[in-house]
Design a protein around this nucleic acid. Structure first.
Lengths: 104, 104
DNA sequence: TACCTACATTAACGTATTATTATTTACAAA
DNA sequence: TTTGTAAATAATAATACGTTAATGTAGGTA
């Protein structure tokens, strides 16, 4: 038994912050949006096509990610481009790939 | 077959699996349970004390983690010891610490 | 036996999420 | 102006989730 090190310790503030982020990622459509985005900026239209649900649905999920400061966006002409605005989130997504991507 | 070496790409099965795990982790009490457990086996009683809510509440959250195969348990006398049963989950928790633990 | 402790389960209730549909705003081109 | 396209918002209804309180169960002890 290895209990050598002190426990993996979070204080409650860290826990809550992490839980908030995890919750934002924990919906299949939102996670897919994040995976599709990766390090790129992609228009809503293209996100809709790559993720595969209605524009309205995507827009609502984008709003959730936007409001939690996970996504940033920039308007160009009449398109809106979203991108991952949080370096920790990018880190997490890369980690997810390592942990969950069976084919890698 | 697989083109997903360079892009951060999940197939839907991986996405859903990951989202399922994230969802299980994304509640503050459940995340705290996982952090408290770390690599150890801890009795329900001790989890209740360390996490800080009612026994009933903990028991219900433990059931959720158990049913998603995130936690395993063993009975000894009239105590039940829970532990993290999924290596990927342990990996994720360690990652969370790196990403979210401000004080480490 | 009876009693206590540790844990699980259930019910009830309120709240939060979700997808769908319809509407609306913003912008560009004709 | 009118028309078309991109995106956001609003409203609804179905479902899922979370907390509390009460009850149930099994193992240990007197």
């Amino acid at each position: 038994m290895e209990n050598s090190k002190e426990t993996i310790l979070y204080n409650d503030a860290d826990i809550n912050r992490a839980a908030r982020c995890l919750k934002a990622m924990s919906h299949p459509l939102r996670l897919k949006i994040l995976c599709v985005l990766g390090t790129e900026s992609i228009s809503v239209q293209d996100i809709v096509e790559q993720v595969g649900t209605s524009q309205s649905n995507i827009s609502q999920h984008l709003a959730i990610l936007r409001e939690k400061d996970i996504l940033g966006y920039k308007k160009e002409a009449n398109r809106v481009y979203y991108y991952i605005d949080d370096e920790r989130m990018l880190q997490l997504i890369r980690m997810m790939r390592d942990v969950f991507c069976s084919s890698c």
